[in-house]
Computed example of a mutant assay.
Amino acid sequence: MQRALWKGAISFGLVHIPVELFSAVKEHDLDLTMLDRRDFSPIGFRRYNKHTGKEVKWDDIVKGYEYKDNEYVVLSDEDLKRANVEATQTIDILAFVDAADVPLTYYDHPYYLTPGRGGDKVYALLRETLRRAGKVGIAQVVIRTKQHLAALVCMDQMIVLNTLRYDDEIRDTGELDVPAKSLKTSGISDKEVQMALSLVEGMTEKWEPQQYHDTYREDVLTLVKKKVKARQTKTITEPQPEREQPSSAKVIDLMALLKQSLGGKPGAKSAAKTETRTSAKPVTLHAVPAGAGKTGKSSATAKTAAKKTAKPARAKAPAKRAPAAQRARA
């Protein structure tokens, strides 16, 4: 059985709920070892004393806070706990807010909360209260040596504690260059919006997370097996030249891409609805020349438009003037 990362209690008002904290996620990162490319030996990292150069064992390592240059206050785990016993043992709910009011950028890491001994009834009471109120509890909790802001969320039969980032940890978006909010300023027409909505409607389905998986990790492991089978375990694959990026000067034919996604029937919701789930594929919007990748009438129309854009009509040359003698006779 999974071991609890933290034991304490949820506290709000006079309510006290004993709980245990468990990580809600497990990572599946690629376990890659750093090697010396000269002989492919693993590279080790050692803990050493910077004055003597000698290696230090884990049992001889303590934590210290540098209060001035090269001067430290040694802090043991017990010191960190005694600094504020209540904070290290309590999930203190400060307020209840609407879940929609907390932006996604604030959410960090989810944990499962389970009731401790004798806490089943009050745990169930809080869970049902959160569910019916449609609120999340905003709390503070100390995990290890850091105090986190957290949101207590009701999820099915479980209360989930999701650590939140503090406001000063969220970067300001003012410096980022994004399209204007106004569709007119961005050059988006109502027809394009309706076609995009039809595409979204055709690709809408029930949330089934088990159908999604890390295909990149699987592809890397397939490549590993392929290299092992071919006895290429010590072969270093050199990088290929980077692909030429699409020129920003090329036109994004958004309407053509949407028509292609909807089966060439702009605005036809019925076509999107009848499309099967398996055949519906998301379309990546690339900068492409007008008319590229299209068929039929829409392709011909786009090509004609591209020609007109690429070759502007020449200005009509002024009529030549008649010689002076002819003008005189006239």
Rank of each mutant, 00 (worst) to 15 (best):
V153A: 01
P115G: 06
L285E: 04
L152I: 00
R127H: 02
I138V: 09
M1C: 12
G137A: 12
I188R: 06
Y67V: 08
T235H: 07
A139L: 07
H109M: 14
T145A: 11
G118M: 13
A151Q: 00
T276R: 10
F22M: 04
G134C: 01
D190W: 09
G291L: 09
H28R: 08
A328T: 05
D167P: 04
I10C: 02
L30I: 11
G187T: 05
H28N: 05
L30K: 06
V136S: 01
S198E: 13
L223H: 13
M203L: 03
D120Q: 15
P103Y: 05
K250H: 14
V62A: 11
E242V: 09
I93Y: 05
T114E: 12
L75P: 02
L152E: 00
L94I: 14
K281P: 14
D36F: 01
P318L: 12
K191L: 07
T33Y: 05
A292Q: 13
S23H: 05
R47Y: 01
K135P: 00
M1A: 09
A271M: 11
K250I: 12
T129G: 02
K307Y: 15
A268L: 09
T222D: 07
D31F: 04
Q194D: 15
V19D: 00
E242M: 10
V178W: 09
Q211S: 04
A9K: 12
V25W: 00
N49F: 08
Y216V: 10
I188M: 15
K229G: 08
D108T: 08
L176P: 01
L221F: 06
A280E: 06
